[in-house]
Amino acid sequence: MNTNSNQESHPINASVYYNVFFLLIGLTVLTLLQPVIINLDLGSTLIVQLGIAFTKAFFIVAYYMHIKSSSPLFKKLIYTTVVLWFVLYGLMAIDTYYRYTPNDLFNN
């Protein structure tokens, strides 16, 4: 019935889902254990926790959301959005940092 050739894109396989699932379980356990194993200060905690979160996010987007097997257009769009957010966060971080610390220009 369907003549649009795009519909039968990538083959899809349950084993990929299981593999990624166990990987995510492992990462989640790591997330929960981090405070129990080592007590870090806020900065390091954030780096560790967000590091794990971004790794998880990568696997979810790449495999659960099939970006790995999608057309380059989707990949480009995702890079754009991620870069945009980093720039936005960067600009806000610059403002917050200079506003709330005594390091601003013209020393006032």
């Binding site: 945009l84 720039v87 936005l88 600009l91 610059i94 403002d95 940092y97 200079y98 506003r99 601003d104 220009l105 013209f106």
Partner: peptide, 22 residues
């Protein structure tokens, strides 16, 4: 155009550094 919003806020108390960047 996405990265220039701060020029509406030169007097709002944002930092000098970000004023110049914007």
């Amino acid at each position: 155009g996405y990265l220039v919003w701060g020029h509406h806020m030169y007097t709002s108390g944002e930092s000098e550094m970000i004023k110049l960047i914007f």
